[in-house]
Each structure stands twice: as structure tokens, then as C-alpha cells.
Design a protein around this nucleic acid. Structure first.
Ligand code: MN
Ligand code: MN
Ligand code: MN
Ligand code: MN
Lengths: 225, 225
DNA sequence: ACAAAATTTTAGACTAATCTAAAAATATAT
DNA sequence: ATATATTTTTAGATTAGTCTAAAATTTTGT
């Protein structure tokens, strides 16, 4: 409604480039990685990269991967802001589980109306994090910086708070639900098994639970102070 | 999400065919009418009609206009249901005016998730009408029948209630806002001017207002009993 | 009834996004 | 260092949705 400058497809590419660049600490994203995340083939990605470079949304040197330009980053952050706000709506207002919302938000993130985004933000009382613990970029296009650590990198017996997840698959999230591991709960690693590197964790200072190494690597926490 | 059988474009065509057929009391819709409402050219419409007929969503005989098949009507009603539910959301929850919501709902109506529609409906407390007074089809794909009359067809001094509008343009809706004509208010035609066929109307039994014939023809009312 | 006007369809072309197969460039491994 | 493997790009098609111009059909007016 406001300007529909870009197609859904272009928005998705820019968003994915942003998230993968972030994940690689600012390093270039490769064609194959994009093909995997866009569910297309490398040839299709090459075409799209040429187009996005032409429009000055990405920095692209053939065979060398891509990063976003300032313009591209602003588009990406706008899409991510909408995605995360809608996820908050789906969970807080409609009662969806955090494992059910991703695909719906994947569609809602492309709704084009500045005013809608602004009113939605206010309706949700200007949330700073989405239901997976990911920070929500502000209306100016600034991404808040957060410093979470993987639970697998925390020393034994250090009390931490569960802040986010680095994998968003329904299977993983449902697994956490079953073990009652939620955002905000207190965690303390009691022991790591020599046998399979699985974790014994004290949950909320009350119950002891066991999680695989794979799970521990994908729990994001911060030191409890 | 659920099945994404149809493109946005196809959904829009089916919705428009439904609404125009309804407006013509079941008569066929012409290619040119569709071209006007889809903002395309007649040639493009012909192509799309061939395609929709092939998929059995419409009954189409060349040069004779189209109607929806049962399958096409179910798609159309699903889209209209979502459009109107989202309009209720925008007005009731986000505080938009009834003149600001159409273009946003035009996008939201294509979000594909049965579960989302169901939860949205419950969140809104299962509204039966949208902010323009239009009935909301139920989850089974049934459109409630309503019997509104144009204010211009009501005898003098008959008390009626404002139930809907037959034009949704922002300009018209804003005009009604300025005159404080809202859904649910009481109206009584006191006099029709010989000079320009404009109306003197008693509003809510209190104030007398004047509206043009053009306005009176687009106000939908029902007899107050 | 029939010519003129209006409407609708067809023909042929274009753009966006995708694909497969082949060619080019880069990375890796002895 | 150089052959082999991997990654990326290019070439050439395909599909959806749109367009303009021309042909076909229906409607209208006398
Ligand atoms: Mn998306
Ligand atoms: Mn999220
Ligand atoms: Mn629409
Ligand atoms: Mn409406």
C-alpha cells in the first residue's frame, strides 16, 4: 500500500541475506547457501543476485558472494520487523504456540502498510523481542544488539536465564515445550556426560532435566545477575 | 500454508466475480466489467477466464460472460470471509477508520492459514458484519442473507436504522463521518427537495442533516421495529 | 435487416521467476 | 603444481500474468 517497491521474492532474498550475514558475523553469503534457504537452485539465485545488485540492494562480485548495501539492509530490517511483530501477535493475542507461527509470519511479513505496522506495534505494546527471543528492529530500521551465549559454552554451575533459540524448527520447539524449557526460565548446567556429552540441567532451581548436546548448543542464554 | 491452490491473482478474480454477480442478482459478469475491477485490459481478462474455466472455477461460454461454479464460489467466499474479518480487526483492535482499511484488507485476505482465520474469528468474538455493514460468510462457506434497502427507496417519515453502504470509497466514507452518519444510527427522511432531490434527514431523532441524492442512494438501511 | 458500434477473443510480445544442462571459475588434495 | 572436485554463472526454456493490435462476435440503431 505504501509503495510496493519490491516483490515478495526480492524481500525474501534480502531478508535471508541479512540473517545469514548476521549468522556469519558479517561475512559474505554464498550462492549455494541462498539456494538452500530460498528452496531454489543456484542458477536461479545467480539471476536474482544480478538483479538485486543492479538495483543496488546488494554488493555482489561474481563468484565472491554477497552482502547487503545500506538500502538493502533497510528493506531487510523492515521485513524482519514485521515478521517478528506478527509473531508476537500470533502468540500473545491469538494463542498460537511458538512452534506454529513461522510459516504464517512468513506471509504476513510482506503486508505493505507503514500505518499498519505502527498500529500493530502499539497494540502489542511495543515488544522488544519475538516469541523465539529474537530482537525486533525499531521503526527507524535499527536492530537492537543482543549478546546471548549458547548454553553449551557456559561453565558448569553458572546460573543463566533462557533467552532464545538458534533453531526455529517446530520439532525442536515442541521438544523444548515437552521438557518445559521456555523463554525466561532459569537454567544451571550440573554435569556433562562423558559418554554422550548430554547435559544435566537444573531448571528454575527446582527440577533436574536431561538434554542432548544438540539441544544445549541451540539454547541461547544470558548470565543471571 | 494450508494448500495455496490459487495465486493471489486468481483469488482476486474469483472474489470480484462473486461480488459483481451478487450485485447483478445472479446475472453473468462481463469481460469489460472484470477488466475495470481488476485494473487490467479485456484481453488479459479473457486469458484468465479461459484458465479459470479450465480449472472448473467458473462457467464460461465465450462472449457470454461468466458465473462461478460451486468450487469457485467456495474460494470466493473464503477470500471474502478473510477480507471482512481482517477489516473488523483493523477497526476494532487497531483503531483504523472505516475509510482506511480496504487496501490493507485487500492484501490480508490472501493469507493462507485455516487455523489463523479460525483464531482471528474467535479473537474478534465471531463478528457477523464488517465495518461497512457487509455480512461475513461463515467458516462453512455460507453467506448470510441480508435485506437492506436504499434510503432513497424508503417512504418519507419512516424510521430506519443505518445498516451499511453500497460504495466503499474513502471519499464517500469520510463524507459520512463528517456528517456523523454511522452504522446503527437512526434515520428518518423528512423531505426530498423538488429542486435537486437532496434529502432532509432526522438523525438519531435529534438533529436535521442534509445529504445529496447521490449519498441517499448509497446508504443501506432497514426498517426500525 | 443490416450497417455501424461496441465488446470480446486471439495473436504475438514482454517481464519476473524459475528450471536443466553446460561452461567457467574457484577450491582442494595429492 | 596441477589435476580433480566443487561452486557459480551462463545459455536456453518454461510458466504466469500482463500488454497492444488485429480479428471475430454480438449488440444497437435506423
Ligand atoms: Mn516471506
Ligand atoms: Mn521468530
Ligand atoms: Mn486482494
Ligand atoms: Mn468491507
Amino acid at each position: 500500500m505504501d509503495n510496493q517497491l519490491l516483490s515478495f521474492t526480492e524481500e525474501n532474498y534480502l531478508k535471508i541475506i541479512y540473517l545469514l550475514t548476521e549468522r556469519h558475523n558479517g561475512n559474505e553469503v554464498s550462492t549455494n547457501q541462498l539456494a538452500e534457504h530460498t528452496q531454489t537452485k543456484a542458477a536461479s539465485v545467480s539471476d536474482m543476485l544480478r538483479k538485486l545488485a543492479e538495483k543496488n540492494y546488494i554488493n555482489y562480485r561474481k563468484y565472491q558472494g554477497v552482502t547487503l548495501t545500506e538500502a538493502g539492509e533497510q528493506i531487510a530490517l523492515g521485513v524482519i520487523r514485521k515478521h517478528r511483530l506478527w509473531e508476537v501477535f500470533l502468540v500473545e493475542k491469538l494463542g498460537f504456540g511458538w512452534d506454529e507461527i513461522h510459516d504464517i509470519a512468513e506471509q504476513l511479513e510482506h503486508i505493505d502498510s507503514k500505518e499498519l505496522t505502527k498500529r500493530l506495534d502499539d497494540f502489542l505494546e511495543n515488544p522488544k523481542f519475538d516469541p523465539h527471543g529474537d530482537p525486533i528492529p525499531d521503526a527507524k530500521g535499527k536492530m537492537p544488539s543482543v549478546s546471548y551465549q549458547k548454553l553449551s559454552e557456559i561453565p558448569l554451575n553458572q546460573s543463566v536465564v533462557m533467552m532464545g533459540v538458534s533453531v526455529h524448527s517446530p520439532a525442536f520447539l515442541q521438544h523444548l515445550d515437552k521438557q518445559q524449557i521456555n523463554l525466561g526460565c532459569g537454567l544451571k548446567v550440573l554435569e556433562i556426560s562423558d559418554f554422550d556429552k548430554s547435559y544435566s540441567i537444573l531448571l528454575d532451581g527446582k527440577t533436574t532435566i536431561f538434554v542432548s548436546n544438540e539441544v544445549a548448543k541451540n539454547l541461547l542464554v544470558s548470565i543471571d545477575e
